[in-house]
Write a protein that binds this DNA or RNA. Structure first.
Ligand code: FES
Ligand code: FES
Lengths: 143, 143
DNA sequence: GATATTTAAGATAAGTTTGTCCTTTATAAA
DNA sequence: TTTATAAAGGACAAACTTATCTTAAATATC
């Protein structure tokens, strides 16, 4: 469904969102430990998220990553879009060049609903929302 | 969502199911033309489907592939399972070792419904069903 | 200003999926 | 029995994803 890069991105962003906003940032090491991901690969993914302004970073001592107030409202949809592209939300299930009503693949009618179900869910779910489940121990980021 | 191999497999199986049952079989060349897939790669995929008895093949002149009566009732679910495995139907969306109620990932509750929606759809859709849409020109296998 | 820390960036490697090519095997027809 | 045909199987190559390593840039603290 999602690439590994995308799964790491989502879990990392949720993890960072669980941390209190303030003067401290969280380091790469902490993040990849919290979500059980390879450190250097995670760094690459975070770089993309920083470039897209979904995440902010500061270099040097006491540096690290943080997510500002507004960015905590980011929808999971946006993260998938940035890391995997939106093929999953708009592409044809069976590989036709483009998904369309005029030239539907074999499963178009049945699949459309599922894709919309997924897109709707991801569009209406924010980092903030997901962070709550982690904070109160209902949901988990690793293992 | 699905691998290219899996998309080719589904389209190929649907195409073969559109052909009348009888003495003639359809060749690899015809199939890969009908679904616009690389010939040699398609051959590999068909080999797997033959091994799994979802498809039958005969070598030599007038040889080729065919799908018997019963096999036309094969659900798309089964084809995905054989080619891609059932990670998509049972695995965790965010990469946890296993999906479970006891140790749910951040999106587990919201994702479960989508996964079940997908699994249900694929489980209740057969080659036969899809072949009809192709036969009457409502749906398409390529471009 | 020097040093230590931490992310950014670039190069490279490993692994997986996708795709091709060549040889072997089975089989129908001449 | 020979020949032609078509799938099966194995080896290999290309492309993409995942992962690592090294160096550069930024910045806080001494
Ligand atoms: S055309 Fe295939 S999903 Fe719409
Ligand atoms: S635990 Fe992640 S989808 Fe169930």
């Amino acid at each position: 469904m999602f690439s590994k890069a995308c799964k790491y991105a989502i879990n990392a962003m949720i993890y960072i969102s669980t941390l209190p906003q303030g003067n401290d940032r969280v380091g790469l090491k902490d993040i990849s430990q919290a979500i059980n991901s390879p450190e250097a690969f995670t760094a690459k993914i975070l770089q993309i998220l920083v470039k897209e302004n979904l995440l902010s970073s500061i270099k040097g001592p006491n540096g690290g990553f943080e997510i500002h107030e507004d960015a905590r409202k980011t929808q999971l949809y946006r993260i998938v879009q940035v890391i995997d592209g939106d093929q999953i939300f708009t592409g044809c299930a069976l590989g036709l060049e483009k998904c369309s009503e005029d030239h539907p693949c074999a499963v178009h009618n049945k699949f459309k609903a599922i894709r919309e179900h997924l897109a709707g869910m991801m569009m209406t779910t924010s980092l903030e929302d997901m962070a709550r489940g982690i904070q109160n121990g209902t949901n988990f980021l690793k293992i």
